[in-house]
């Protein structure tokens, strides 16, 4: 805390940049935040927050198995992410148990399997970094994977941007005009799994769902236009990541937690002061002084 006394804003920002690991962390986390923020608009509008939670937790055993077998961890995570969704769909269809119950049941089961596997395999897996993320300790191979997956998700979302918007808004109309709704459903799920995979490096499995829903929720309070919502969502995600990493560097805090907390504060700010949908409706407040 003594640091603060001789810190200027300039050195607050530039000092961390002298470290290689910080430059890497800032860049990678911004990229991950942008990807998750992009997807976040769709997930919040589709009402898939719980699904995001489920997928992000379910990738755990996949990560562990992939590490143990020496495969890219994203591959394992992806298989288990999509697998969990398929299992949720199957159980929902074949039983009378309600959907939210099934989702809760499946993802905790997968997550538990992951934890048990970690204890059994006892390799050099760092449970802490899987659960809470380790943006400061990201390896070169992880960097390559993250860039590759991020590019893939951004390209997919950009190509099918409008179709996905239609799918979230009115799937019946999409179907009626011959758009493949089945494909869009699985495309969104695939992107969700991939985004969860890259997101967990930044903030870890437990908090990655925040990356997937908070930026979208914040943007939803600030605009009535879908394109603006996407831009705001991406920007707020990137800004939170930068703030989180800087704050964690200077005050020696857990990085993942700091990033998510920054997102939560931005959301709270929008919740209170958003011009149209905030509790205090800033626009009206200003109008009062005119």
């Amino acid at each position: 805390m003594e640091l603060c006394s001789f810190l200027t804003l300039d050195s607050f920002i530039t000092d961390p940049l002298t470290h290689d690991f910080m430059r890497k962390a800032l860049l990678m986390s911004s990229l991950v935040a942008a990807v998750c923020g992009f997807l976040s608009s769709y997930l919040t509008l589709k009402g898939w927050a719980l699904m995001g939670d489920a997928v992000s937790h379910s990738v755990m055993p996949g990560v562990v198995v992939a590490y143990a077998l020496g495969l890219p961890f994203s591959l394992g995570a992806f298989i288990f992410g999509v697998g969990s969704v398929a299992l949720i769909g199957f159980i929902k269809q074949k039983s009378r148990v309600k959907e939210d119950t099934v989702i809760g049941l499946v993802f905790t089961g997968f997550f538990a399997l992951g934890i048990v596997l970690v204890s059994k395999i006892k390799s050099n897996i760092d449970l802490h970094s899987i659960l809470f993320g380790s943006p400061l300790g990201i390896s070169l191979s992880d960097v390559k994977q993250t860039i590759l997956i991020s590019l893939l998700v951004v390209i997919l979302l950009s190509i099918f941007r409008k179709d996905l918007m239609l799918y979230c808004f009115d799937p019946r109309h999409a179907k009626t005009v011959g758009i493949n709704v089945f494909f869009l459903h699985y495309l969104l799920l695939t992107c969700l799994s991939l985004a969860a995979v890259v997101g967990l490096q930044s903030v870890g499995i437990i908090l990655v769902v925040a990356m997937l829903i908070t930026p979208g929720a914040t943007a939803y309070l600030l605009t009535d236009k879908f394109d603006n919502m996407t831009v705001i969502s991406v920007l707020s995600a990137i800004i939170s990541s930068l703030i989180g990493i800087y704050v964690s560097f200077w005050f020696d805090l857990e990085t993942g937690g700091s990033i998510v907390l920054a997102q939560t504060f931005i959301f709270l700010f929008a919740f209170l002061f958003a011009p149209r949908y905030g509790i205090f409706k800033l626009k009206k407040l200003f109008a009062g002084y005119k």
Binding site: L45, F169, D170, V177, G178, D224, K225, F226, N228
Partner: peptide, 20 residues
Amino acid sequence: GIDSQFPISVWDVVMMGRYG
């Protein structure tokens, strides 16, 4: 049957009629 809070304008909804 529709989400009236969806951030979309009249123009964009009507344009969806042309997507196919």
